[in-house]
Structures are given as structure tokens and as C-alpha cells.
Design a protein around this nucleic acid. Structure first.
Lengths: 211, 211
DNA sequence: TTTGTATACATTGCATGCAATGGACGTTTA
DNA sequence: TAAACGTCCATTGCATGCAATGTATACAAA
């Protein structure tokens, strides 16, 4: 569905921020289609967890401090799983050197963008990196859920998007994760992935979670 | 949305089995509404991961052996998380004795139904039990994802639904999980939950997963 | 008998119209 | 001036119509 992708993009890319009410007619004239496809796109996004039914129409999902912590806990579990599976596949010889090279490449891009102060690009490459780990895990069920969680977190943390205090730490964690996967060590990969996600979370909660 | 709940029920309760193509008009006359609300319900179910877009219309999601294993891995992670969180809340005094009593009650009902050979009731109570653990964890993000996974697994394993070879083992695992939560031991609760889910999975894969 | 093609039909995607509902705003009264 | 009430309008939920698309079937030809 084309309208679905467009509306999803409007939300994930920030045109409609978290908590924003969305009226059907507004989307209609913006996209140049009638209400029917717009409504169907909104229903599907509702299933995706990106918008919620409000008293009138829908609003973009908005996670408060606790809901954000909850989402990060889910994310940490699942990223531990995907990292573990990716490492296991590496151990079993199911990954190619090109796979690992690309993983390093994504980590490089994320690090470069962050160091250069391009936060938006940094976040984007970061997500591609984590997404590629999930791809290497070859677990579509996990990937689908992670996409859900990533989107929800992205939308709800955009307002408080700032540069990491010590970008080198983020990059170090990426490298450790890569090392564990490359070494075919599932336990270590899972641990690094979990810790990395949780440390990302604690940065957020330290800044805005005292409410 | 009322139509959404009805269609969802038709799928989860087995009227429309896994892999079944669903045409809009069929649902229209069955539910006595026009195509518009039916279409919106299907789009939302698509977002829920319960139906997939086919070349023509939608079909009920059907997980093959590998997809089923993937889903069980995700489920194991998340149930470990909810069990761990529930145990932590117990340790921190956030759960009431009534909470634990109800947990035991659900386990009792599940065990009784299973021993009496009522598979459908057994599965239902089983799910209520696991759902209540997630409730005690107080993590709506995890609960939402688990509902998704449970529904998908329920739909795709209905055809091969048989009595557990040794129902006493299932019940023992439930009791161990309850004990760990009641003791406020997050580590042990997580381990028991994970092992319980994985042992459930292995029963399935041993029977039908050799393909 | 098999294969290719054309036609008809089933089904979907989208637009529009109408009724219902809920909220906003203005008016009135204490 | 503040609060309560009523009216109006924005917005949504549902039904229906029409065009497009893909599939199945029947028929013809090799």
C-alpha cells in the first residue's frame, strides 16, 4: 500500500511528531487521495503500534518515561537474541566474510556521522547497523518486532535528540559486539548487545526520565 | 472497532485456519456490514501480523517450521523478561498476595483442564496464565508484543494440537516459575520461563518439524 | 491431448455521499 | 464575571458505485 508507506514516513521522519493528532482530511489533501486509502493506512499503522485511537481519530504514539523504559527492555531482550543468533550462525559457518564486512561498514558510517555532529545521519546509520545484525540473525519474527519497537522509540525520543556525551563509548560497544559475532561467540554477543541497548536507554533516562 | 474484534475472533478461534484466503465479500455477508469496515479491520490485522497480503486479498498468517521456531525464540526472550520483571516487583514489594494467589489459580485451572483431556480449555487457561505473568510484570510494551506472538503461534499450531505427552511436566514448570516469582528471584524466574517456553517449542518441533 | 488465447467474471482499490457523533464556540443567566 | 446551556460545524463511521486488475474457464489450434 503506497499511502501506508507515505503516512508511515511522515510519522517516522518527524513531520507528525509524537502525540500529534492526525485528521483524515489533512492527510487526504497532503497526499492527494480520498479518505478511504488514508483510513486503511491509519488502521494498519494502528496495528503497527505507531498511532493510537484517540477519542476523535488517531494520534501519533507517545511513550512517556516509563513506557520508554519498557520499550527499551523489550528491545534489549530482542537485540540480545538477534546478536546471539547472528554469532551462532557465524560459528556454524553460515555467514560470509562479506556479511561481516558490511557490518563493520555500517558501524563505520554510524561512527563517522556521529563524530561529525550529524545527529540525524548518525541515528539513521545506527539503526541500519542494528537492523543488519537482525538480518544476520535470520529471524524475521524478531526483526518485525524490532522494527515496531525501533519506530516507536524513534518517534518518542526525537524531541530529546542530542549528541551522545561520549560517542567513542557507543562506537566501542559496537566494535565489541562485532568482535563477538565475528568470533562466533553467542553468549558474548548477546551480553554486549543487551548492555549496549541498556546503556543507550540509561542515557535517555538520566536526561529526561526524572519526571 | 467492533468488526475488527469479530474478524480477529474468527481467526484466533479457528474459524479461518492458517493459510486460509479471506475475501472481503465473504466477511461482509457473514458480519452483515459493508466492505469498508471489513477492509479497515483487515488492514489493522495486517499490522497485527495475523493476516498477510496475498496476491489477491489477504490470507491468514501461516508459520512454517522455521518461522515457528523463530517465533518461539522471540517468545522465550520476552517471557523471560516478563517473568524476571514480575519477580523483581515481588522482591520490591509491589505485588500483593492476591496477585500470587491468582497466578496459582490460573495454573491450577490450566492443569485441571489438561489432565481432563480438554485441550482447548487447557490452551486457553495456559495462555491466561502466561498473560497474567506479563500483567504482573507491568510492561505493556512486552505484553503487546507477546499477544502478537501468542496469536500467531496459536493460529499456526492449531492443526497439530495434541495433548502434551507428560502434562505433569508442564505443570511442574509452571510451579517452578511461580515459586521463583513468589521468592522474588528474578534470575531464576527468567530461567524457568525461558526453559518452559523452549520445552514447549521442542515438543512441537519434535513432532512436526522434521520437514 | 496439450497448449495458447481470448473473454467473462470475481475481487480489489479508490472516490464520494450521507448520517451520526462529539467538540467548540457563542449566548444567556445568575 | 463566571458558569451553564444550546446550536453549529468539524470529523468520523459506514454504505455504495465505478473503474481496474488478475484469474479462471472455455474454446480453438497444433
Amino acid at each position: 500500500m503506497d499511502v501506508y508507506d507515505e503516512v508511515r514516513g511522515l510519522i517516522v521522519l518527524g513531520t507528525y511528531p509524537a502525540g500529534q493528532p492526525i485528521t483524515e482530511l489533512e492527510l487526504c489533501e497532503r497526499l492527494g487521495v480520498s479518505r478511504t486509502p488514508v483510513r486503511e493506512a491509519l488502521r494498519r499503522l494502528e496495528g503497527d503500534g505507531l498511532v493510537r485511537a484517540a477519542r476523535r481519530g488517531v494520534t501519533v504514539v507517545e511513550l512517556d518515561a516509563k513506557a520508554l523504559r519498557d520499550a527499551y527492555l523489550v528491545r534489549a531482550c530482542l537485540e540480545a537474541l538477534t546478536a546471539e543468533s547472528a554469532a551462532r550462525r557465524q560459528r556454524d559457518g553460515e555467514l560470509s566474510p562479506a556479511n561481516l564486512a558490511r557490518l563493520v561498514e555500517h558501524a563505520d558510517l554510524a561512527d563517522q556521522a556521529t563524530r561529525q555532529g550529524d545527529l540525524v545521519a548518525g541515528v539513521r546509520h545506527n539503526r541500519v547497523f542494528h537492523g543488519y545484525v537482525a538480518t544476520l540473525a535470520d529471524n524475521p519474527a524478531a526483526s518485525e518486532v524490532l522494527v515496531r519497537i525501533w519506530d516507536q522509540i524513534t518517534v518518542s525520543t526525537r524531541a530529546s535528540l542530542t549528541a551522545p556525551a561520549r560517542p567513542v563509548l557507543v562506537d566501542d560497544e559496537h566494535r565489541q559486539l562485532i568482535d563477538a559475532i565475528a568470533a562466533g561467540d553467542p553468549q558474548r554477543a548477546a551480553a554486549h548487545a543487551r548492555e549496549h541497548v541498556l546503556s543507550t536507554m540509561s542515557v535517555l533516562t538520566e536526561r529526561g526520565g526524572e519526571t
